[in-house]
Structure formats: structure tokens, C-alpha cells
Design a protein around this nucleic acid. Structure first.
Ligand SMILES: [Mn+2]
Ligand SMILES: [Mn+2]
Ligand SMILES: [Zn+2]
Ligand SMILES: [Zn+2]
Lengths: 151, 151
DNA sequence: AAATTAGATTATAATTATTATAAATATAAA
DNA sequence: TTTATATTTATAATAATTATAATCTAATTT
């Protein structure tokens, strides 16, 4: 964790941004909840536990900054809020998501499954791919089992 | 166009919804601008040209209804608004998008490029895929050409 | 046909997420 | 230390979306 923060600190400094206590607190929340998909409000409430004086606008600005630096990715699963997701260290692209339409759970796929598809897009559409968002909507393992039991 | 409306009318009736004049006007706007990616507000302004007495809330409710029936798909490209996109007739899944980070253009890919990936997700993650959202972010053909010229 | 009912729409208010602004504070440079 | 710059706080403003109540429409029953 400390190593990770250090490396991000360097990324910030490289672009002449500082790692203020507020930014660090925000980052720590994101690291502690790496599997989750927190909204700005969610992050704000969690940061408040560590640093009660932080303002919501600062959280928004910090998340915006971290997005620009590609440290976090901003994603929207169709409910009205943006969610912020730490990019896996060293990952070229945003990872994929499985959203269950029964229970609402969100699972992550870290493997990049789109390499072949991207080659096709590049070749057949002449589009130079820089990043992607891929979300599958369907029924998760657990919910499938429940359905079978009920039947 | 009339045929298409007729078929959608039947889909509505099958679920015991009516095709009111307001709903029809909304649908016509979506059909006329099939390539576009209109926000609720955009749709509202265009519908108003045909049916000036329509209310914004009705447009929202109509779009919501059409989403439920899978006649339109709701998507968010990361600016703060939801956009509504007619599903191609007979398509099992939502089509894909290419968003240019230079000029903001949105191009559509109608071919389903995810069949193989979905098989893997199904097999290796035990997730039963019902639908997907795939958006590539990158540089469109035109913007690439401009870049070359400038260089 | 008249009365009844359920569904849909309008106009408006309320809510929620996000962004902008101005004053205060902290940090770095001179 | 003084000065300049960056950042944060508190608050106001904006924008998107949803909720509410009154009204209207069209179908159904009497
Ligand atoms: Mn994730
Ligand atoms: Mn589209
Ligand atoms: Zn589930
Ligand atoms: Zn472009």
C-alpha cells in the first residue's frame, strides 16, 4: 500500500501536482476499497472518517485529477452516478465488468479480452484505439444457482 | 418507416401499452435520427417541433418505456447525460461505439464483435451474458488524417 | 348514450449529482 | 520574511432526472 502511494505520488509530481493530505486520504480510500465501485459521494463519506474536515468538492476535484492521470477510471453503470475505479497497476486499458441484472453485483475481469477485437476495429474501421469500456449485463453465478434451486 | 412504427406498435400492444400520439412523435424522432445519440433534452426539442404541447416528463417516461421493451438502449458516454439509441431491428445485443477523443464524434459498429469473448466469459466466469455495452475510445479516421497533415 | 374507470399527459415542484465562485489556507519560490 | 501559486473550504448555482397533483383521453360498463 505504501509503495503504491509512493509511486502515485511520483506520478503526480511528474506532472507538478502535489499529494496533499486530502488527496492522500482520498487515494487511501480508493486503495482500501479497490474491488468496489464507489461514487463520489461514497468516497466522500469514507474519506470523512479519516479526515472529517474534507469538502465534497475537493473529493470531486481529486477524482477528476486522478482520472486525467489515468490512475482511476470513471465509469457509469446506468444508475445516475459516476463511479470511480482504480486502474490495476501497469494496465494499459480499463478492465471489464460483469453486472448482474438480478442482484446488482459487479464483478471484475482483469484479463484483457479485447485484443483481437481491437485489431479488427483498427484494421476494418481505421480507428486508433486508445482505451475501452466493456460491461456485460447478465446473471451472475450465484443468481443462476438460486434460480436452479427454485425450479 | 411506417412499417417499423407498425411493428413497434404491435410490441407495445403485446404488453398492453398504447401508442399515444406523444409516444409516436417521440418514436418518429428517434427513427429519423437513427444514427445520432440524442439526450432526453435533444429528443424533447425535436419532438416539440412536431408536437409543441408535449412535456419533457413525457419524453423521459416514453424513453424509459422504450428502454424496458428493448426498443431503445440507454447509454452514457461520460458527459453527464444519458443518451438513447434505437436498437437495430432484430438485434440480440446493443451495438458497439467508437468515440473519438479528439473531435467527439461517435461512430457505430453494427457487427457483433463479442461472440467469442462472450463464450469465454460464460465458460470461465460462469456468467450468463444477456447484453453488453462496448465503447472504444480513440482517434477516428478523420482526426488521424489531420494529425498526419499537420506533422 | 351516459357514467365509470384506468391510463397517460401536462405543468410544476422537488430531488440529486455535479460544477462554479469567492474567500481562506497552505506550500513553494524569491 | 515577503510574494506568488496552488489548493481547499464553504457555499451557491446549474443541470439532469424524478415525483406529484390536476387534467385529459379513450376504452369499458351500465
Ligand atoms: Mn472495476
Ligand atoms: Mn449507436
Ligand atoms: Zn446476481
Ligand atoms: Zn475525431
Amino acid at each position: 500500500m505504501e509503495h503504491r502511494i509512493d509511486r502515485i505520488k511520483k506520478q503526480l509530481h511528474a506532472q507538478s501536482y502535489k499529494l496533499t493530505p486530502q488527496r492522500e486520504a482520498t487515494l487511501r480510500v480508493l486503495l482500501e476499497r479497490e474491488e468496489d465501485h464507489l461514487s463520489a459521494e461514497d468516497v466522500y463519506l469514507l474519506v470523512k472518517e479519516k479526515a472529517p474536515e474534507i469538502g465534497l468538492a475537493t473529493v470531486y476535484r481529486t477524482l477528476e485529477l486522478l482520472s486525467e492521470l489515468k490512475i482511476v477510471d470513471k465509469i457509469n453503470f446506468g444508475d445516475g452516478v459516476s463511479r470511480y475505479d482504480l486502474r490495476k497497476e501497469g494496465a494499459e486499458h480499463f478492465h471489464h465488468h460483469l453486472v448482474c441484472i438480478e442482484c446488482g453485483s459487479v464483478e471484475e475481469i482483469i484479463d484483457d479480452l479485447l485484443q483481437d477485437v481491437e485489431k479488427i476495429v483498427q484494421k476494418d474501421w481505421g480507428f486508433q484505439v486508445k482505451d475501452h469500456r466493456l460491461t456485460f449485463h447478465g446473471i451472475c453465478k450465484q443468481c443462476q444457482e438460486i434460480t436452479v434451486e427454485v425450479t
